[in-house]
Design a protein around this nucleic acid. Structure first.
Lengths: 233, 233
DNA sequence: TTCCAAATCCAACAAAAGTTCCAGAAATTG
DNA sequence: CAATTTCTGGAACTTTTGTTGGATTTGGAA
């Protein structure tokens, strides 16, 4: 249950202050694979730090389609927002594998923030970063086509780098679809598209990047570079 | 230049602490209609409070289509994120009308936060709220059809309530399109759709809500309630 | 190895969104 | 009040995304 805060993104500052207080505030939790950690809309479940395992944050719409916001592995943190304002959790969290986590309740966090300014400062940084991330995702959803989003996922640049734990390669088409906010079939099509555009290739069931530059172009401009047509005669 | 912080959303707390310090840190700025307040990607422009006028925050994609993130009137605040972490501005800000604003630079803000814990606390609240807002918008973009988003805009529920200053009625189709992240024609079509579904109606150039409940249903479930067909005979 | 469940491929189709184009209506302004 | 610009209406079309369903492949478990 020893946690080196220097390794926790955006909370490194805590390593240099009274960590004892923070550690006393935290409760250790264990979840078995598939367990619900908390549900969207439920009363604030507090601030979480993943110590071990894989956590999925997601939203679901009225028709049952789901949107994976992030796949988190140690030492990621989540539910900063609800923990900060004490409001309902803004998404669902489930343990994909067995998960160990530290949890600090909203009330404890409030107390802590008064006594530990370093925590408050860290928190502002973490929230600011989260915000930037969501703005980026919002633009991805408003402007980018699915092939373009897929390219971005494979490059796992900025937006996804922090948030998605697995290489796209290890994800099923179903899971990629949930991340991109679309359906399995569409992802399959897009994958095939990128493959015969020569940007990706498959060796067995393993998909890998062939043309990084081409992917970047697609991710940025939303267009595939014009393929040379093989002249008919 | 006197500002009553009790009226500024999420910064009411400041009214009860040393406001003098905050006010000394703030610079007064004036922008004429159409002026650029700051640009996306530029070095941090600081924390802004709208004292008068109308401000548009927007993003633009590589093809030149634009997405209006918010239309702000007094006493809204903006650019909290960049002001917090000192990073580049995450969007563009322009003065739609003449604008008066208070601006606190990142450096000054950092100093202030050390001496004024109330500001830090307010800031955490403001960032948390922003985050919730972006998560909501992200889901709108991933899950909702354009008619559904349009319905939501007309109800201007949660998501848009804080962010969009004007009634949809006063907006041109072009502006609505930029808010919903689509094009003018599509908005026109959707408007016509909602009108002959009996949810909206027009009196002259003024569009008004006829069936609030129907709009809510559309906003929530993404489907129009099945119209009764008039039997042919 | 054999079998099963999961994952994938692929085609054909349906629906939604984006594009192009042009004609009118409304507002603004000289 | 004309002239000009801005905004709206709407048709026809293209592209993208979503849906359905069946055929195949694959990786493990028995």
């Amino acid at each position: 249950m020893k946690l080196d805060w220097k390794q926790v993104p955006y909370f490194e500052g805590l390593a240099y202050c009274n960590v004892r207080l923070v550690e006393d505030a935290a409760r250790y939790h264990h979840y078995s694979a598939g367990a619900v950690i908390f549900a969207e809309g439920d009363r604030c479940a507090g601030f979480h730090v993943v110590l071990d395992g894989l956590v999925r944050l997601y939203r679901m719409n009225s028709e049952g389609r789901l949107h994976t916001l992030s796949l988190l592995r140690p030492l990621s943190t989540f539910n900063e927002v609800a923990a900060a304002d004490g409001g309902p959790n803004p998404f669902n969290a489930v343990a994909v594998t067995q998960v160990e986590a530290l949890v600090i309740s909203h009330d404890r966090l409030k107390q802590l923030m008064v006594s530990e300014p370093a925590l408050l400062t860290s928190y502002v940084g973490a929230l600011a970063h989260l915000n930037r991330d969501y703005i980026e995702r919002l633009e991805d959803m408003t402007f980018r086509s699915i092939p373009s989003r897929l390219a971005k996922l494979f490059l796992h640049e900025t937006t996804y780098a922090d948030q998605i734990a697995e290489t796209p390669t290890n994800l099923t088409q179903e899971e990629i679809a949930a991340i991109l906010g679309t359906t399995r079939e569409v992802v399959g099509r897009a994958l095939r598209g990128l493959m015969n555009a020569g940007l990706l290739a498959k060796r067995g069931r393993y998909v890998y990047v062939v043309d990084r530059h081409g992917l970047e172009l697609l991710a940025e401009t939303n267009t595939l570079p014009e393929r040379e047509r093989i002249p008919r005669r």
